[in-house]
Amino acid sequence: MSTGSVSSTEHHHAHHFNSAEHEFDASMLGIWLFLCTEILMFGGLFVAFFIYHAKYPEVFAAGAATLDWKLGALNTIILLISSYTMAMGIHSCQTNKGKKAFNYLAVTFVCGLGFMVIKAIEYSGKIGHGFLPGKFFHPHDATFEAANQALYYSFYFMMTGLHGLHVIIGMGLIAWVAIRAKRGDFSSKFYTPVEGVGLFWHLVDLVWIYLFPLLYLVG
């Protein structure tokens, strides 16, 4: 066993697998397939976005103008940092530094929290102006000439809402994995949960990488 902290509960692989390596490969394939379904689910929204963006360019231009791209850029930076710290968290587990992993995961969690706080600021700004999705859309001050201007905010809230939900789920998973890392459950022999949560978190970041230019920058 390498010098790192000896994991308190020695992980023994499930009875229907031949070895821990076998179990790890199966889990990785399983997680990647799950990520594929996540891509397809978010993708449905992207497809609808591109189709309606081509159909009502002025609605999307007017809508994008009301968004604060600086907050979007800041969120992107935050998520990139959180991806980096997540990757470092996994790295520390792989090299038997369970305690260090906890710090990295904690930073990732905080970044996620920061992302949600900025999101909350943006949402309250939108609600303040009355830019709500669908039939709740009643702009106080701004006037729009397009009849279905609410379509843009329907997209905005559906996409960022679904993404935000996944950020929250991700944060929950990171917290659970961070606690286990602190308890020393992970070692170079067994770190599947961290790797899994890490992959999920990177996917959430991947989706935001596309969401940012789509909503904030592209007029």
Partner: peptide
């Protein structure tokens, strides 16, 4: 998953009128 997003959008269509 594409059915999942379609049904989600349909439910949002009914509840929020997106």
């Amino acid at each position: 998953p594409v059915l999942a997003i379609t049904l989600l959008l349909l439910a949002a269509e009914r509840l929020l009128g997106i």
